[in-house]
Simulated assay, not measured.
Amino acid sequence: MKLAFVFALLAAPVLAQPVENPLQPSELWDDMRSSVIGTDTEPPVDPAVLLLDAPKRADNPALVPIHITQPVGAPAVTAVSLVVDGNPAPVAAEFTFGRALMPLDFEVRVRVDSYSDVRAIATLEDGRKIMAGRFVRASGGCAAPAGKSMEQVRATMGEMRFKQAAENGRDIGTLMIRHPNFSGLQRDQVTLLTIPAEFIQTLEVKQGDAELFTMDAGISISEDPVFRFGYVPGDGPVTVHAQDTEGRVWDKSFTGGS
């Protein structure tokens, strides 16, 4: 039932195009910019190339939907660094994208620990960097209690579901992976002891031999991560390879969106 609810929620157009929460001046970003993108030069913000939608005020700071899109005809994106300025580990994830996902329409849920800019820094095919982002009012997301008991966590860890739907000539894939993605800042609600960090670190999603997207993640990706992405369907099943920080590996193949 819970899985069905999550898929139904993400199948809808979750986020509008907000104008009330643009990026704010950020000393945190000024300090980390060079280490994140390798240069002190601020990437331009260009909505003709890249857009990022996020709620002005998050309903749940541990499950903040981030939707990265491109207008039709925009230059192809090869990679995106997703950054939450105010989080203990600001780089939430680094993604790479295959040609089948262009123009980009990609959604993921993150934890937001304090009122913060959330930004995507994209690398284009020609090597240029473009930025998009929003200021999100949320706090406590990285330390929010897990949604399930430890028994439930261990019993379902690594389970995956994948659904497809046609939309405007493309497929929309929704991938859900059962994993607590412990941040290292949460407490066991029974023992009150801090739960060590334990999260999906790498993810590879392909169709046949063609890459759809990869992820190299930190602690800011939400519990039971969900990825929604538009793509041009190709040949072969959609395959998923996931590995967490404990070395556990899960592989799954989906045919026909099952």
Rank of each mutant, 00 (worst) to 15 (best):
S183Q: 07
A122P: 05
S258C: 05
N181G: 09
L9E: 14
S253T: 14
M160Q: 12
Y115W: 10
M102I: 07
A146E: 08
T174A: 13
I68P: 00
A210F: 01
T194S: 12
F227A: 00
N60M: 13
E223Q: 12
T194A: 13
P18N: 06
E20M: 12
I130A: 10
K148L: 14
I37L: 11
D209A: 09
E151D: 15
M1E: 10
A120S: 05
L9M: 11
L203P: 00
E42T: 10
M1A: 13
S258H: 13
Q207M: 10
K129V: 12
M32Q: 11
R111D: 06
N181Y: 06
K2I: 15
K56P: 11
E151V: 15
R154M: 09
P65W: 00
P18Y: 05
G256R: 10
S116A: 11
G236C: 07
F227I: 00
V83N: 07
E198H: 15
I172N: 03
L50K: 08
E159S: 07
P103I: 02
D188W: 07
T202D: 03
Q24K: 05
L124N: 04
R161L: 07
G247D: 11
M1F: 15
W250T: 12
D31H: 09
A197S: 10
I66Q: 01
L212H: 01
I68M: 02
S81D: 11
P61V: 09
T214D: 08
F199V: 08
P22E: 15
P103L: 01
